[in-house]
Structures are given as C-alpha cells and as structure tokens.
Amino acid sequence: MLFQTKDLKFSHPGQKEYHFQDISLDRGESLLILGKSGSGKTTLLNLIAGLLSPHSGSVVLDGTAINQLDSGKMDRFRGENIGIVFQKPHLLAPLDVKENLMMARYFSSKKGQDADELLKELELSNKSHSPVNQLSEGEAQRVSIARALINRPKLILADEPTSSLDDENAERVVKLMQDQATKIQAALIIVTHDHRVKEQISNYIEVKSV
C-alpha cells in the first residue's frame, strides 16, 4: 500500500469532532472524495497534506507517518512527495510560468521532471515565459497542475480543481491529472462535488458529518 489513513479525528476549535473514514490507495490509483458543502472534505484533504495535524489517527505515505514529522521536515516532505492543486490556481504573480515551476523545484532536493517536457505535455510550451496574470483560467489551472507534478510527487491532491472551469477544460484537467498520475505512478485524490468529474473517475468515498 502506497498511501493509508487510519482513524483520523479532527475538530476545528469549538466545533464538533470529525471522524474520517479510512482511505488506502496504491500507486496509480485514483479516488474521489464527495460530500455536501461543509461536510469536511477540505478539512480531510488538509489533514492528508499535513497542513493540519489530526487529534488522533495516522497518515502514512510510502512508509512515512507524516503526522509525526516536525514542522520543517513536514514542509520539505510535502514539497517533495505531495503535489497539491487548489480550487484557484494560486500562481505567484511576479514570476512567469516556468519560474513558478522552478520555485517548487527549489524547495525539493529530489530530481524532478523536466520542466519544459512537462509544460509540453500540458500544452503550455508556448507560455513558458508568459507572466502568469496573462493566462486564461484553464491555462492557469494547468500551470498549477504542472507545479504540483514537477517534483514527481507520490501523492497528488486536488481540491475542487474544476469548479471554475467550463466543461471542456474541466474534462481536460481531470484527464491530465489521471494521465500524469499514471505516468509517475502516484496516487490521486480529488475532492469535488462536480458531477462531470464523477463520469471520469468511478472510485469514491463520501464524507458525512456524523
């Protein structure tokens, strides 16, 4: 098993406790996390990414119990092994497309993918030196996917990556993530309530507020 969560419990300050269902994924596998708004999907994703630490339970990625790493090591581990795609692209505005990728490369000591090659695969070759605020929504989201993939992560996390994209771009983005996950043999977890995504990925769990 590449990735496993066990007995994850968490509560935001002053709110009821979430008890999340266990997840386990192998290399190249994909999973959707579905659920109503406010049910705790983003919270679960943050726990998996090590951005929040659970009250109890464990998250293990490729043998590393990431909730036991200290803050600095966790950041480094996340940079090298977990690629995150946000709902909005959140690119760094002062940098151009390629520099955004190279920034992610800087924080990792792993040998990642070739940036130009990756941009080509995502059909962004001609944008590699464009300022990021001149990109279209779909292009920007693809750049953020490229940034999540540049270090060959073992786990790819995406939080509603398609919610602001049109049908065509939404399908393309999900397909890209699946293809890349297969290529670099990473596990893929997508949080969504977008039915267009459900048509592409069948494996899912549902988060319910208990």
Binding site: S71, G79, I84, M103, F107
Partner: peptide, 10 residues
C-alpha cells in the same frame, strides 16, 4: 501559503 504548500518552511 502557496509557498508553504509547495515545500517552503516557515
């Protein structure tokens, strides 16, 4: 926050 998410430490 994005920098942290892509691996920068505090």
């Amino acid at each position: 926050a994005v920098l942290r998410a892509i691996g920068a430490s505090k």
